[in-house]
C-alpha cells in the first residue's frame, strides 16, 4: 500500500471529537503564537527595554520610558505587522480555495496592483497630499484596491448568471499587467525623488507611526474576517469543484462572491497599511497545510495566526539586521520564507 505523502497522516482527524479538539488547539496555539510575537517584537530595538518595567503599574506612564517606547513607538508597528500578515495569509487561503489553485496569492486578482496604482498616483501627483495629510497614500491605495476589485468582479459576473473563476483569474492577471504598465509610465514621468518614494512603497513598510491607520484598517478587515468565519466548510467543498459543491447543498455563487469580496477587502486594507508585501499569502497557507492538513476549518485560523506572527518577526528582522539602516520588510519575507519553503517542499516529497 502506498503511503500518504504531502500531509502527515497521523494528524488527520480520526474521530469527530478529535476534530473539535484540533480546531480548538489550532486556534489557541496559533493565536498564542501571534500574541507572543506582538509582545516580543517591541522589546527588540536600538534601546533595550524590559518587559517587567513596561507592565510595572507602580510607575506612572508619563515617567515610564520603557512603557512609552513599548506602547507608543513600537507596539503600533507590531500590530500593523500582525494585521497585515494575518489578513494576507487569510486572503491567500480563501483565494486558493476559490480558484482551486494552490499557486494563487492575494495579489493574483489585481487588487494589489490597483492599490499600488492608487498610492503611486498620490505620491507622484502629490496634489491630494495636502487634502488628506499623511493619510493620503493609504486612502488612495485602498481606493485603488476597491476600483480593481470592482472591475474584476464586474468582468467575472457579466456573462452567464454565475461567477466565472476562469474569467476572474484572467481578468486579475491582465489587470495586474495593465496597472503595472501604468505605474511604470507614471514613474517614468515622475522626478527621481518621487520615484524613489514610490519604489520604497512597493517594497512594503510597516512603520505606521501611530494606531490611527490601524483603527481605519480594522473596519474593512473586521468585515472580511466576519465573512471568513463562515467560509471554511464551504471552501472545503468548493475545492471539489463548483458542481460537486452545489449538489452537496452549497450556494456556490454566494460562497464565491463572499470569498472573493472578503479576500479582496482584506488584501486592499492590508496593502493600504503596509504596501504590497509579497510571499506571506502563499508561503503561510502552504506551511500551515503541511502542519495541519487541508481542512479549511484548521487551515484558515492557523494561517491567520502564523501569518501575523511571521510578518511581525520578519519586520523585527527588517529593522534590526542592518541597524540602524532599515531593510524593506517585503525583501525579508521573501528571503526568509523562500528557502525555508523550498526546504519544506523537498523534505516532504
Amino acid at each position: 500500500m502506498r503511503e500518504a505523502t504531502a500531509t502527515l497522516p497521523a494528524l488527520h482527524p480520526v474521530s469527530a471529537g478529535d476534530l473539535r479538539r484540533r480546531i480548538w488547539l489550532v486556534q489557541v496555539g496559533f493565536g498564542a503564537l501571534a500574541v507572543a510575537a506582538c509582545i516580543g517584537a517591541p522589546l527588540v530595538g536600538p534601546t533595550t527595554i524590559s518587559l517587567r518595567q513596561v507592565f510595572d503599574t507602580t510607575i506612572p506612564f508619563g515617567q515610564n520610558v520603557d512603557a512609552q517606547i513599548f506602547f507608543i513607538a513600537r507596539l503600533p508597528r507590531a500590530f500593523a505587522g500582525a494585521l497585515v500578515g494575518g489578513s494576507l495569509a487569510a486572503a491567500g487561503v480563501v483565494l486558493q480555495a476559490l480558484l482551486r489553485n494552490p499557486l494563487a496569492t492575494p495579489f493574483t486578482l489585481g487588487v494589489s496592483a490597483g492599490a499600488s496604482l492608487g498610492a503611486m498616483l498620490v505620491i507622484t501627483l502629490g496634489v491630494p497630499l495636502t487634502l488628506l495629510g499623511s493619510a493620503a497614500v493609504p486612502v488612495a491605495s485602498f481606493a485603488g484596491a476597491l476600483g480593481a476589485l470592482a472591475i474584476v468582479y464586474f468582468l467575472a459576473t457579466m456573462r452567464r448568471q454565475g461567477l466565472s473563476t476562469l474569467v476572474l483569474l484572467l481578468a486579475g492577471v491582465t489587470l495586474n499587467s495593465l496597472f503595472s504598465a501604468i505605474i511604470l509610465f507614471v514613474q517614468y514621468l515622475a522626478d527621481p525623488s518621487q520615484t524613489l518614494q514610490s519604489v520604497r512603497w512597493v517594497m512594503g513598510n510597516l512603520d505606521v507611526g501611530s494606531y490611527r491607520p490601524l483603527v481605519w484598517a480594522l473596519g474593512p478587515m473586521g468585515l472580511a474576517f466576519v465573512a471568513f468565519a463562515r467560509l471554511p466548510r464551504a471552501l472545503n467543498l468548493l475545492t471539489l469543484g463548483a458542481d460537486s459543491a452545489a449538489v452537496r447543498g452549497i450556494d456556490v455563487l454566494r460562497t464565491q462572491r463572499v470569498a472573493f469580496l472578503s479576500a479582496s477587502l482584506a488584501t486592499g486594507a492590508a496593502v493600504a497599511v503596509g504596501g504590497p508585501i509579497g510571499f506571506i499569502g502563499i508561503i503561510v497557507p502552504h506551511l500551515v497545510r503541511l502542519l495541519v492538513g487541508a481542512d479549511h476549518r484548521l487551515v484558515l485560523p492557523a494561517s491567520i495566526g502564523l501569518g501575523a506572527a511571521f510578518l511581525v518577526v520578519c519586520d523585527v528582522a527588517a529593522r534590526t539586521v542592518l541597524s540602524p539602516m532599515e531593510l524593506p520588510v517585503g525583501v525579508i519575507t521573501a528571503m526568509l520564507g523562500g528557502p525555508f519553503f523550498l526546504w519544506l517542499l523537498v523534505r516532504n516529497r
Binding site: 500518504a4 504531502a6 500531509t7 497522516p9 488527520h12 482527524p13 480520526v14 486558493q96 480555495a97 482551486r100 489553485n101 494552490p102 466548510r233 472545503n236 467543498l237 475545492t239 471539489l240 469543484g241 460537486s244 452537496r248 447543498g249 452549497i250 497545510r289 492538513g293 487541508a294 481542512d295
Partner: peptide, 20 residues
C-alpha cells in the same frame, strides 16, 4: 472525475457528504 487542489484524506472527502 474528481480532481482536488489540496490533499484531503479519504475520510474528510466522505464527511463532506454530510454538509447538507
Amino acid at each position: 472525475e474528481t480532481e482536488l487542489a489540496f490533499d484531503y484524506s479519504v475520510l474528510e472527502i466522505v464527511l463532506m457528504g454530510r454538509y447538507p
